[in-house]
């Protein structure tokens, strides 16, 4: 009879409270876990170190400038050939 606890009562309430505390104390964002994420007035998406294809920031910048210049070059080529054929 005494082996199983009677349902309800103070112990269940305490258990529930504990579970609730635990749920609300696990962090729900990177910053509340102590890492460097979005803050109150700032939206940050990429602040952690994930393992992926590591790239130097300068490489990305040069690639982007290269991409922009290729689009410009296409425009220029189109304009020149357009002038020649027309």
């Amino acid at each position: 009879m005494s082996s199983s606890a009677v349902p309800g009562g103070a112990r269940t309430l305490a258990k529930r409270r504990n579970a609730k505390d635990k749920a609300s104390s696990t962090p729900n964002s990177a910053r509340s876990a102590g890492a460097n994420g979005s803050s109150a007035a700032m939206l940050k998406l990429f602040t952690d170190e994930a393992d992926g294809l590591n790239v130097d920031p300068l490489v990305v910048l040069f690639l982007s400038v290269g991409f922009i210049f290729s689009v410009i070059a296409l425009h220029v080529i189109a304009k020149i050939t357009g002038k020649l054929t027309a």
């Binding site: 696990t26 962090p27 890492a35």
Partner: peptide, 28 residues
């Protein structure tokens, strides 16, 4: 950014932000 951070903020998806690899997955 808003979509995933709201989902994790309301605990609709399961992310353990205490673990570094999980934060990495979340970022990816």
């Amino acid at each position: 950014g808003f979509f995933w951070q709201f989902l994790s903020g309301f605990r609709l998806i399961n992310v353990n932000f205490n673990v570094k690899s999980d934060r990495g997955y979340f970022q990816s």
